[in-house]
Simulated scan of single mutants.
Amino acid sequence: MIPSFLLRRQAVTQRRQLVKALAATPAAILASSWTAARAQGEYPARPIRLVVPFAAGSTPDVFARIVGDRASQGLKQPVVIENRSGAGGNLGTDVVAKAAPDGYTIGASITGPLVNNSVLYRKMPYDPFRDLAPITFGVHQANVIAVTPSLGVNTLRELMDLLRRNPGKYNYASIGVGSLSHLSMEMLKSLTHSFVVHVPYNSSPAAVTSVLQGDTHMTSLAPLAVMPQVQAGKLKALAVSTAHRVAQLPDVPTLREAGVPMDGSAWIGLVAPAGTPAPVIERLNHEFVAAMRDPATREKLKAQYMDAEPGTPAQFAAFMKAELAKWGPVIKRSGATID
Results as ranks from 00 to 15, higher is better:
10 Q>E: 11
11 A>T: 04
12 V>G: 00
16 R>F: 08
22 L>S: 03
23 A>S: 06
26 P>N: 13
34 W>F: 11
38 R>N: 08
38 R>A: 05
38 R>P: 00
39 A>R: 00
48 I>L: 13
48 I>Y: 07
50 L>M: 15
52 V>R: 11
53 P>W: 14
58 S>H: 13
63 F>M: 08
65 R>G: 08
66 I>Q: 06
69 D>L: 08
71 A>F: 09
72 S>V: 02
72 S>T: 04
73 Q>G: 06
80 V>R: 14
80 V>C: 02
81 I>K: 03
81 I>F: 06
86 G>F: 01
87 A>I: 01
87 A>P: 00
91 L>W: 07
92 G>A: 09
99 A>I: 11
102 D>I: 14
104 Y>R: 00
106 I>D: 04
108 A>V: 15
110 I>T: 13
117 N>C: 07
118 S>V: 02
119 V>M: 07
122 R>S: 03
124 M>H: 03
126 Y>T: 09
131 D>V: 11
131 D>G: 08
132 L>P: 01
133 A>S: 10
136 T>I: 03
137 F>G: 13
138 G>R: 06
139 V>Q: 01
139 V>H: 06
147 V>C: 11
147 V>T: 14
151 L>I: 12
151 L>F: 10
152 G>S: 05
153 V>H: 09
154 N>E: 14
155 T>V: 02
157 R>L: 07
158 E>I: 15
162 L>H: 09
163 L>A: 12
164 R>P: 02
166 N>R: 02
168 G>I: 14
169 K>C: 05
169 K>G: 05
173 A>F: 07
174 S>D: 10
174 S>H: 08
176 G>T: 10
178 G>I: 06
181 S>G: 13
187 M>W: 10
196 V>G: 00
196 V>R: 00
200 P>Y: 02
201 Y>Q: 06
202 N>G: 09
203 S>L: 04
208 V>Q: 01
209 T>I: 02
210 S>Y: 11
218 M>H: 07
219 T>F: 08
220 S>E: 12
224 L>M: 13
227 M>K: 10
229 Q>D: 10
229 Q>K: 13
232 A>L: 11
233 G>N: 04
234 K>T: 07
234 K>C: 03
235 L>I: 05
236 K>H: 13
240 V>K: 00
241 S>T: 15
243 A>L: 15
247 A>Q: 12
248 Q>E: 07
250 P>F: 12
251 D>I: 01
252 V>G: 00
253 P>F: 08
255 L>E: 04
259 G>Y: 13
262 M>Y: 15
267 W>P: 01
268 I>D: 00
269 G>L: 03
275 G>D: 11
279 P>M: 08
284 L>F: 12
288 F>T: 00
289 V>F: 03
293 R>H: 10
295 P>R: 09
302 K>G: 00
303 A>W: 05
306 M>G: 02
307 D>R: 12
308 A>G: 03
310 P>V: 02
312 T>R: 03
313 P>I: 02
317 A>F: 07
317 A>Q: 14
320 M>K: 12
326 K>N: 09
327 W>I: 00
327 W>Q: 07
328 G>V: 06
330 V>A: 14
331 I>F: 11
336 A>I: 14
